[in-house]
Design a protein around this nucleic acid. Structure first.
Length: 274
DNA sequence: CCAAATCCCTGCGTGC
DNA sequence: TGCACGCAGGGATTTG
């Protein structure tokens, strides 16, 4: 499942291979979570040149040489691949963007939790309005322990749920929330509002650290995430608690517990995390 | 305002 | 081998 490091990895490759390429046309092969509106999209996209690809939270923005951009979210199983037009389509390809020269940028998504859609930016290079509700980027300075301590005051939601709230901080999904809290030694069931300054210092530092390390490894391949070239990420080998319920904590040897919070699995060590 | 529940979707692992 | 079933979860939306 793509979280921030996986999306960052994909964006870096897409930016490199797509910048400067011209769009010839688009075809929608199957419905996505949000409607694509092929007809009006074809008008605004055909003939446009891709300027670059950026990431905000877990969203991808494909900038064009106009105030229209393509906004994408990979959901659980979304992926982009760049194929020759002669290459046969795959079962879950949902959208095909034909590029001048014969290549096709294809968006595939088995479970349709993701989408690609044209959006309008006020000015070239602005983030589209659809992203205006998002909290700070975790790897930027605005994501600080001071800000978290302030933001969490009075909140009675478990800290793991809190750090996965995209209005609080973006890009921290289920895998990295468990990992960061384990590294910080904080029990995921604690309420966000009761964490003290030292605990927020550790949580914020570990969120940054685990995300940076995961980006360096090209992300985590848990089920079906692949880079644009079809390669697996490498960070799944560095996971300390996620997916390791019943196994020994790598730090203290106690049994890693798996519980459910907000309908999602949480993994933690009851001895290391207090 | 806040918190919790619900929904969307399909591949995959498990048990019989 | 085949089938039924439960699980995986990001984020928008609904309910309490």
């Amino acid at each position: 499942m793509p979280e921030l490091p996986e999306v960052e990895t994909i964006v870096r490759v897409l930016d490199r291979v797509l910048a400067g390429r011209k769009i010839d046309g688009v075809r929608e092969l199957g419905k996505m979570r949000l409607p694509f509106n092929t007809k009006s999209a074809a008008r605004s996209l055909s003939g446009a040149t891709i300027v670059g690809v950026r990431r905000r939270a877990k969203y991808l923005v494909i900038d064009l040489d106009s105030t229209t951009a393509l906004l994408a979210h990979l959901g659980m199983t979304g992926n982009f691949h760049l194929d020759s037009a002669a290459e046969p389509l795959q079962k879950h390809d949902r959208l095909v963007i034909s590029l001048a020269g014969g290549d096709e940028l294809r968006y595939s998504d088995a479970r349709r939790f993701g989408f690609v859609k044209p959006v309008r930016a006020a000015r070239l290079g602005d983030w589209p309005d659809e992203l205006s509700h998002l909290g700070p980027e975790p790897l930027e300075r605005s994501f600080s322990w001071r800000a978290m301590l302030e933001r969490a005051r009075g909140r009675k939601v478990p800290v793991k749920i809190f750090i996965m709230d995209q209005e609080v901080v973006v890009g921290v999904g289920n895998i990295y929330a468990s990992e960061a809290l384990h590294a910080a030694g904080v029990d995921p069931r604690r309420l966000a509002g009761v964490l003290d300054m030292d605990e927020w210092k550790r949580v914020v530092a570990e969120i940054k650290a685990v995300l940076r390390r995961a980006i360096r490894s090209g992300g985590s391949t848990i089920r079906n995430y692949r880079t644009v070239d079809g390669n697996e990420g490498g960070f799944q080998r560095s996971l300390h608690v996620y997916g390791r319920g019943g196994q020994a904590c790598l730090r203290c040897g106690s049994e890693v517990e798996q519980i459910r919070q907000g309908g999602r699995s949480t993994f933690f060590c009851p001895k290391c995390q207090v």
